[in-house]
Amino acid sequence: MNLTLKIWRQSNAQAKGKMVDYKVTEISEHMSFLEMMDVLNEQLINKGEEPVAFDHDCREGICGMCSMFINGEAHGPDRGVTTCQLHMRMFKDGDTITIEPFRAKAFPVIKDLVVDRSSFDRIQHAGGYISVNTSGNTQDANAIPISKHAADEAMDAATCIGCGACVASCKNASAMLFVGAKVSQYALLPQGKVEAIDRVQNMVAQMDLEGFGNCTNTGACEVECPKGISLENIARMNREFLSANIKG
C-alpha cells in the first residue's frame, strides 16, 4: 500500500517543531508500524536527509520504549498493543497517517517523536520499592501464603510497562493510572503493607511535583493502555492515599 505520513519534526528540545509530509510506497500489510518507519528512514538516509528519531527497543511490546501518538491515539488505532506491535493491516492503501510524540508537560520532547519520560523514574525513586536488603537471607518464599486471587490481581497491576500512553491519552496529562498500578501491586501483597503509608504519600507528592494533572475519571487511559491496566488501580490508590492521610 501507499501512504502519506504527517510527522512531527523537531530538531531538539529548544527548537520549534512542525508537521512534515512524507510519502511511503509498497508497504506490506504484514509489516509492523515501526518497520514501516524503518522503510521511511532508509529512504530518507539514501536521499541524504535526516531520519525521523523515534524511541523503540524490544519490538515485542514489553520494554515500553516505543511511543508515538498515531491518528490521535497513543500506540495507534489497535487495542491492547504498543506501536511496535501495531500492524499495517490496520491501515488502508491511500491513508494519511498523522504521527506525533506523546505530549505532556512532564514529557518534554527531546527530538522528533522522542520524549523524556524520566519523570516516571523519579516517581518510582520516591517509593516504588519494598525496603528489603538483597542478601538472599529473607524468609522462605513459601513462608507467607498469598491467595491466588491477590497474587493474580497484583500481577495484573504489575504488568504496566511504563510507556506513558495513559499520560498522553489523558486530557489532564495525569499519571494516575501509572502510579496507581505500582501502588496497587504493593498494596495487594502482604510484603508491601509495611511501608504502604509512606509509599503512597511520597509517590503522589512526586507525581504532583513533576507537573502531571489530576484524574477526572474520563477513562481514556484505560482504553489506550497497551496492557489493559484497569481504572480500579486509580480507585485503590485514592483509597490508600486517603487512608494514609488519616492514619499518617
Binding site: Y129, T134, Q139, A154
Partner: peptide, 12 residues
C-alpha cells in the same frame, strides 16, 4: 526467596 520478599508477583 529474595524476589518474593521484593514483591515479585509469581504465579501461585
Amino acid at each position: 526467596d529474595q524476589c518474593v520478599a521484593q514483591g515479585v508477583p509469581f504465579a501461585r
